[in-house]
């Protein structure tokens, strides 16, 4: 039984097919990575998987529910959470409140009880605050518990988005380039964090250019190019896919034998070979 099924999905912007006839399935419990060069359609795909963009073609089925055409908040209510490549932090709030917003679905209450601040709500607010603080510690933001979001460094904001997404108690979490802009130490800590996410029972979709991270944590990899599937399979298979390994990953191995940090150049070669 797949958690998410994408069926012949397409998105057109004017004449451009940002995502084109794409089908795949994601099984629960795994880390499913999506890689591909800039402009391959990865973010567009995540935007469709969260209702931010409506597909031009195809279907998105989550569990038993066909969510095609649903609004973003409905995707969230079914258990899909995400982070953004270009941060969508609430800079008019404290870091803690950002995470508390993530608790909205569990905590929301009637207008009257909000206006009158019912006792029940006051208690729930207290619990919400505690839980948000707990999540901030969980993602390593214990030093920012009292920070205002607009005073936090970039790397911390990326984690803040992860904490906010986690606060929704998702079944599926989509991370759009979580390592971009992080220093190497911060990027290393991400491996651990992603590992702990799956440990919590959250299925992770990882869009990332950092091949070290992708190869380190992925169970399954989808390679996108010009909105189409270039290759897909278990991480090991994709690594060993002749099409991919020779052209793509092969050249990403730098001279000292480790994977390069970015695949942009490797992908260019891969794409050439593919044509």
């Amino acid at each position: 039984m797949s958690l998410l099924r994408v069926d012949r999905l397409g998105k057109k912007f004017g004449g451009v097919n940002a995502v084109d006839d794409l089908s795949f399935e994601i099984r629960p419990g795994a880390v499913y990575s999506i890689i591909g060069p800039n402009g391959a359609g990865k973010t567009t795909l995540l935007n469709m998987l969260t209702g931010v963009y409506q597909p031009s073609a195809g279907r998105i089925v989550f569990g038993e529910h066909d969510l095609t055409g649903c609004a973003p908040y409905e995707y969230a209510r079914h258990g899909i959470a995400r982070t953004f490549q270009n941060l969508q932090v609430f800079f008019n709030m404290s870091a803690l409140e950002n995470v508390m917003v993530g608790r909205y679905m569990q905590e929301r209450c009637g207008l009257v009880s909000a206006l009158l601040r019912s006792r029940r709500l006051a208690r729930a607010e207290h619990a919400c605050r505690e839980e948000a603080a707990e999540l901030m510690r969980y993602v390593g933001l214990q030093n920012y518990l009292y920070a205002s979001a607009d005073a936090m460094p970039y790397g911390a904001l990326k984690r803040l988005e992860i904490a906010r997404a986690l606060a929704t108690r998702p079944k599926l979490m989509l991370l759009d380039e979580p390592a971009a802009g992080l220093n190497p130490t911060e990027a290393l800590e991400l491996d651990d964090l992603i590992g702990r996410l799956t440990g919590r029972g959250v299925t992770v979709v990882l869009v990332e250019h950092n091949m070290r991270l992708v190869m380190g944590v992925s169970d399954h990899i989808l390679v996108l190019d010009y909105g189409r599937k270039l290759a897909e399979g278990p991480a090991l298979t994709v690594r060993n896919d002749p099409k991919v390994i020779e052209a793509y990953l092969g050249s990403a191995v730098s001279h000292d034998g480790t994977f390069g940090e970015t695949i942009a150049d490797a992908v260019a070669v891969a794409v050439e070979m593919h044509r």
């Binding site: 953004f84 909205y104 679905m105 997404a165 606060a167």
Partner: peptide
């Protein structure tokens, strides 16, 4: 969009 994806209409 940040608000919508945590379930806020």
């Amino acid at each position: 969009v940040g608000a919508e994806v945590v379930g806020i209409n």
